[in-house]
C-alpha cells in the first residue's frame, strides 16, 4: 500500500524542526507523486519562561495558522524526495504587537529505506531521512512570539526504525539531529545574551535533538497513529523574566500527537489526513494545542504506480 502524508502538525519548534516532516517509513513507488495542501493551527496561552509556566496579558493567546503546499516523489522505490513550502500567519489575541505573515522556510527531504527484514509475523524496516531547510523570505526573526521562524538554515538527519506486523499494527522509533546555522541577521547591531553584550546582528543557536516513539495501525483505507515526541535544544539561554523569547533560547518540548488518515484507494487518488496534539511539558516554549488537516492527491508520473513498498 502506498501512503503519502505531507504535513506534520506545527510544533512550537516547527521553524527549527520543519525538516522533520517525513517522519514515517512509508514510501512512494518509483514515478509516483503525492501532492497536497494542508492547513494547520497552533495556539497557546501559557508558556514556559525557563521552567516557570506563565501567561502574559500583553500577548494573550498566541496563534499560528499555516498553509502548506508540498509534493513527494518516488525517485526509485526506496528513495523519495519531498518538498514543502509553508505560508504562516501569526496573531496575538491581546496587546498591541502586530501579527506577521509570509513564506517561512523551504523544506527539502530525501528519505531512503535501508532495509526491510522479515522478523516473526511482521517486518522490521530501517530507514533514514535527510532534511534541509532555509528561509524563503526575510521575515522578522527577533520578534518572539510572533516571528514566523528562526531564519536559520538547517540540516537534519533522522534515523527511523519500525516494526510492522502483518495484522497492521506497527511500532516505531525515530531520532533526529538538526544542525542549525547561526541566525544570520536579527536587524539590529546589539543584543544581550547569556550575560554577554554582542555588537553584531548574528546569533549563535544550538543544535536540536529530538526523538519520537510511535504506535499505530494501518490497513487499506486508514492509518491511525499516536506519537510521543521530545524536542531538546542542546543549550541556550532561558527567557528573561517577563521578556519575549530570543532565538538562542534553550527551547524544549514534549508533545503527544494523534494522526488519522483516510485513503479512498490504496494506490492512487485522494486521501485525507487529520492530526492533533498537545504540549505536555516544555521549556522556553508555548504550551500549545495544535492541529492540521491535509488533503493529498496521489498519481503516477512513470512506472506502474501503486506498488506496495
Amino acid at each position: 500500500m502506498t501512503k503519502c502524508y505531507l504535513f506534520i502538525p506545527m510544533l512550537l519548534l516547527s521553524a527549527a524542526l520543519s525538516a522533520q516532516t517525513p517522519t514515517d517509513l512509508q514510501f512512494l513507488s518509483s514515478g509516483d507523486v503525492c501532492a497536497g495542501v494542508g492547513i494547520g493551527y497552533d495556539a497557546w496561552s501559557k508558556y514556559w519562561e525557563g521552567d516557570v509556566r506563565r501567561e502574559n496579558g500583553n500577548v494573550g493567546t498566541v496563534s499560528r495558522r499555516q498553509f502548506s503546499a508540498g509534493f513527494m516523489l518516488g525517485i526509485v522505490n526506496r528513495l523519495n524526495v519531498h518538498i514543502r513550502v509553508p505560508y504562516i500567519t501569526t496573531h496575538a489575541s491581546q496587546g498591541t504587537l502586530n501579527g506577521q505573515s509570509g513564506l517561512q522556510d523551504l523544506n527539502l527531504n530525501l528519505k531512503g529505506k535501508f532495509a526491510e527484514i522479515r522478523l516473526g509475523k511482521g517486518n522490521l524496516v530501517l530507514g533514514g531521512n535527510l532534511g534541509f531547510s532555509t528561509p524563503l523570505s526575510k521575515y522578522l526573526v527577533d520578534f518572539a512570539p510572533l516571528n514566523l521562524g528562526f531564519g536559520t538554515t538547517n540540516l537534519s538527519y533522522r534515523q527511523m526504525a519500525a516494526y510492522q506486523t502483518d495484522m497492521g499494527l506497527y511500532f516505531g522509533a525515530r531520532a533526529n539531529y538538526t544542525y542549525r546555522s547561526n541566525v544570520p541577521n536579527i536587524h539590529r547591531d546589539f543584543y544581550y545574551d547569556q550575560g554577554n553584550a554582542y555588537y553584531l546582528n548574528e546569533i549563535n543557536v544550538d543544535d536540536v535533538f529530538d526523538w519520537t516513539l510511535a504506535a499505530g495501525y494501518t490497513d487499506a483505507h486508514i492509518l491511525a497513529e499516536i506519537d510521543f515526541n521530545a524536542v531538546n535544544t542542546l543549550g541556550g539561554s532561558d527567557i528573561r523574566t517577563w521578556e519575549p523569547g530570543f532565538p538562542s533560547n534553550d527551547m524544549d518540548a514534549a508533545t503527544l500527537t494523534g494522526r488519522f488518515d483516510y485513503y479512498f484507494s490504496k494506490s492512487k487518488g485522494l486521501n485525507f489526513s487529520v492530526t492533533g496534539g498537545y504540549t505536555l511539558s516544555g521549556r522556553n516554549a508555548g504550551q500549545s494545542v495544535f492541529g492540521n488537516v491535509g488533503i493529498n492527491y496521489l498519481f503516477s508520473l512513470w512506472g506502474k504506480g501503486g506498488a506496495v513498498q
Partner: peptide, 29 residues
Amino acid sequence: NSIKYAILIAAAGACLLMAISSCNKDITP
C-alpha cells in the same frame, strides 16, 4: 540497494554539511 541508498543519503548530507559549515558558527562577544 540498501547500502546504495544509505551511501547516497550520506553523501548528500556530507555535501550539505560542508556547504553550511563553511559559515563559521563561532561568535564571540
